[in-house]
């Protein structure tokens, strides 16, 4: 097992070395930012190599910190280059007019079946796709409210575990459902927030 771990480490570090060599050559600031994000992913891969349940619990905070750093730095880039205006329309393809409803629904339902973090991510992709195609005016307060209630449910599930361990199955289902709703709500907000007057 340990030898497999070391092989994995070597591969990841080779990847890191590759991105660093790209760093040395790159002069464009946006590209540097993207490369920095790539190296960040390599950091997560090192955590993932631990391959225990704990590793899964460590990846999420690592990912959150990485994303927030990326957001902060890109915010600085926008301020520095004075890029305050949103482009009119990012891109349009045919499927975005004809299929958003069904695609979104399929992904959300599949996500609910998966449940938990993974299901949340899948369902959120569906939501993002839907918002991306149909526009996203005036829905933030609703999504935020759902997210907040999901959070409360999640905490309640933890209290169920601690205070009434015999109801553990109820707690698991509540936590799984709540985390699904929360991840969906938060992730669907990510791409949609920028440039709104109430953002």
């Amino acid at each position: 097992m340990i030898s497999g771990y070391i092989i994995g480490l070597i591969v990841v570090f080779a990847g890191v070395a590759l991105t660093f060599s790209a760093f040395l050559k790159e002069r464009d600031d946006v590209h540097k930012l993207i490369l920095a994000d790539l190296t960040e992913i390599a950091g997560l891969a090192i955590i993932a190599l631990t391959a225990t349940d704990l590793a899964e619990a460590l990846i999420i905070p690592g990912l959150v910190v990485g994303i927030s750093e990326l957001l902060a730095v890109s915010e600085i880039y926008l301020t520095r280059e004075k890029l305050f205006f949103q482009p009119e329309k990012l891109f349009t393809i045919e499927v975005m007019d004809s299929a958003p409803g069904i695609m979104g629904a399929v992904l959300v339902i599949f996500g609910i079946i998966l449940s938990g973090f993974t299901g949340g991510a899948v369902a959120a992709t569906g939501m993002i796709f839907y918002f991306l195609c149909k526009g996203h005016k005036e829905r933030f307060s609703l999504v935020e409210t759902v997210s907040a209630y999901a959070w409360v449910l999640w905490i309640a599930a933890f209290f169920t575990f601690m205070l009434a361990p015999s109801y553990w199955f109820f707690g698991v289902m509540m936590a799984g459902g709540a985390i699904l709703a929360k991840v969906v709500a938060k992730m669907s907000l990510i791409g949609a927030m920028r440039g709104e007057s109430n953002a």
Partner: peptide, 22 residues
């Protein structure tokens, strides 16, 4: 901006060190 790029890159050795310890 430059500081931010270095800070992002620095998270690899940080998390890497912790993960290898684990």
């Amino acid at each position: 901006y430059n500081y931010g790029i270095i800070a992002i890159v620095a998270t690899i050795p940080l998390f890497g060190g912790a993960a290898i310890t684990l």
